[in-house]
Amino acid sequence: QVALSRTQVCGILREELFQGDAFHQSDTHIFIIMGASGDLAKKKIYPTIWWLFRDGLLPENTFIVGYARSRLTVADIRKQSEPFFKATPEEKLKLEDFFARNSYVAGQYDDAASYQRLNSHMNALHLGSQANRLFYLALPPTVYEAVTKNIHESCMSQIGWNRIIVEKPFGRDLQSSDRLSNHISSLFREDQIYRIDHYLGKEMVQNLMVLRFANRIFGPIWNRDNIACVILTFKEPFGTEGRGGYFDEFGIIRDVMQNHLLQMLCLVAMEKPASTNSDDVRDEKVKVLKCISEVQANNVVLGQYVGNPDGEGEATKGYLDDPTVPRGSTTATFAAVVLYVENERWDGVPFILRCGKALNERKAEVRLQFHDVAGDIFHQQCKRNELVIRVQPNEAVYTKMMTKKPGMFFNPEESELDLTYGNRYKNVKLPDAYERLILDVFCGSQMHFVRSDELREAWRIFTPLLHQIELEKPKPIPYIYGSRGPTEADELMKRVGFQYEGTYKWVNPHKL
Rank of each mutant, 00 (worst) to 15 (best):
D280G: 07
I292L: 11
V366F: 08
T316H: 12
L419E: 01
L267N: 05
G502E: 13
M402K: 05
E457R: 07
T487M: 14
R345V: 10
P406L: 06
Y319R: 01
T331C: 09
F409T: 15
Q499S: 13
M493F: 12
Y481G: 06
I480L: 14
D279C: 09
Q369G: 05
T403Y: 05
Q446V: 06
L465V: 11
Q369R: 02
A396K: 01
L465R: 06
G502H: 11
I352W: 04
V301I: 13
T503H: 09
D283Q: 03
A297Y: 12
L437V: 07
E491F: 10
L419I: 06
V450H: 03
P412N: 13
P478A: 10
L465M: 11
L439A: 11
A315Y: 13
H448C: 05
Q369Y: 01
E344L: 07
E457N: 13
Q304Y: 06
K357S: 02
T399W: 11
V507A: 14
K357M: 01
E284P: 05
V338I: 11
Y479M: 00
G444M: 06
A297F: 14
V391F: 01
T399S: 12
V366H: 00
E488F: 07
K429P: 13
E470T: 14
D279K: 12
H379E: 13
E416I: 00
M493Q: 15
R282Q: 00
R327F: 12
Y319W: 01
H260A: 03
Y421A: 00
F410S: 15
G311H: 09
H448T: 05
T324K: 09
D372R: 08
Q304N: 03
G444N: 08
V306P: 00
A396C: 11
C355I: 04
F370R: 04
L368M: 11
G307H: 08
V397C: 09
V288C: 10
L368A: 07
R367T: 02
R254H: 03
E501C: 11
L289C: 10
N308H: 13
V496S: 14
D321H: 07
G328V: 09
I389R: 02
Q392M: 07
H379S: 15
F410V: 14
F378R: 03
P431E: 08
V300D: 00
K405C: 12
R345C: 09
D322H: 05
K404F: 00
M402E: 11
L262A: 10
E365L: 03
Q468W: 11
V301T: 11
A336S: 15
F449M: 05
Y425H: 11
L437M: 06
R354F: 02
D432P: 10
D255Y: 03
G422F: 10
T420P: 07
E294I: 10
A332L: 02
R327D: 14
I253C: 10
P474Y: 09
P406K: 08
Y421I: 11
L437F: 03
E414P: 10
Y425N: 07
T463V: 05
P412D: 03
V388W: 03
L439T: 13
L368R: 04
A335V: 11
K400W: 02
I352Q: 00
N423W: 09
F351D: 05
G311V: 09
E342Y: 11
R495D: 14
V428R: 12
Y421N: 01
S452L: 06
G307N: 11
I292A: 09
G502Q: 10
L289T: 09
C291K: 13
R384I: 02
T276A: 14
F410Q: 15
N423E: 15
F334Y: 11
Y319I: 00
F351Q: 00
Y398R: 03
I389E: 00
Y504E: 04
E435Y: 04
R390K: 10
P464Q: 09
P309A: 13
R282H: 08
V301Y: 02
A332W: 01
M402V: 10
V325P: 00
F410A: 15
N298L: 10
K429R: 14
L492P: 03
M264E: 00
Y481L: 08
P350A: 00
C291V: 13
S415N: 05
Q258L: 05
P412V: 09
M402L: 12
G422I: 13
N299C: 11
E416K: 02
K429V: 09
L466M: 09
P323I: 15
W346M: 02
D432R: 10
L265D: 02
R367Q: 05
N394P: 04
V256F: 07
Q499H: 14
L368T: 03
Q369C: 06
F449N: 01
D322G: 05
H371E: 08
S293A: 12
N394R: 08
Y398E: 01
G348K: 11
S415I: 05
Q392R: 00
L419M: 12
R345A: 12
G307Q: 12
T487H: 12
V295S: 13
G303C: 02
L353Q: 03
E501T: 13
G502S: 13
M402W: 07
Y421G: 00
E435L: 08
I477F: 12
F351V: 04
F449E: 03
N343T: 13
D418H: 01
V286S: 09
K404E: 01
A374D: 15
C382M: 13
V306M: 14
G497N: 14
H379V: 13
K357D: 03
T330H: 13
Y421H: 04
I292Q: 02
D283S: 08
Q468G: 15
G497H: 11
E271V: 04
Y425R: 03
R424H: 03
E314V: 11
K473E: 11
P412E: 11
G318F: 00
K290C: 07
S483H: 07
E416G: 09
R362Y: 07
H379I: 07
M270R: 00
M401E: 01
N385A: 02
C291A: 12
R484V: 02
G485T: 00
E488W: 05
I253E: 03
V450K: 03
G318K: 06
M270I: 07
V281R: 00
N259G: 00
L492F: 10
E284D: 07
E361F: 02
F410H: 15
E284Y: 07
K494R: 09
L465K: 04
I469T: 13
F410L: 13
S445R: 12
E284S: 09
N385G: 07
R254I: 02
W346F: 07
G348C: 05
A489D: 03
L262K: 05
H379P: 15
R460G: 08
Y398W: 11
G307R: 15
Y398M: 00
Y500W: 13
L353P: 03
K272H: 06
W459N: 00
E294Q: 13
V388Y: 02
